[in-house]
Amino acid sequence: MYGDAADWNGTSVGIEEKLPSGFLLTTVEKLAAYMRRNSLWPATFGLACCAIEMMAIGSAQKYDISRFGMEVFRASPRQADLMIVAGRVSQKMAPVVRQIYDQMSEPKWVLSMGACASSGGMFNNYAIVQGVDHIIPVDIYLPGCPPRPEMLMDAILKLHEQIKDEKLGVNRKKVIAEVEKAALAATPTHQIPAFGASE
């Protein structure tokens, strides 16, 4: 999400470089966010069992995602906005994931669907990358094995909320710097004092 903004082959495309600042910027941000989130096109990146639940959300009548404008699963990463990593990423597949991610053009988001994509899931072994966030930046994690189609929809809607608040231009650079500072200063998870434990 807040990766390198629109820097492809050394030239910037899109609205990024034509931005005003200040009050006008917030209006542009709101408009851009509205456009972007209301027709996110997913890239087909179904790997394993979660891919079947992803197909169900696309094709089964109960869980229709066309209502969000997302039923067009683009095969070509150049035309896709959202990469739903659905399934376990094996060591052999990891470079391919990275290559597909790199080929997607800004703005792009990643939803890691399922326990295996988020953290390696139940397969804590030599063959599976322990979380696709080792390879690509993830915007929203969705646990489950496999997550129900309703859960996937919930994750997509939460992603829409995230996109709604995304900043552009000067504001974006500011947010990126803040997030990075916070992440560098954060305590690692296993050193956070457990619930109810005294210092």
Binding site: L47, S90, K92, M93, F123
Partner: peptide
């Protein structure tokens, strides 16, 4: 093939 090798048998 092998892009989905999960090592289930060893696990």
């Amino acid at each position: 093939i092998g892009y989905l090798h999960t090592g289930i048998e060893k696990n």
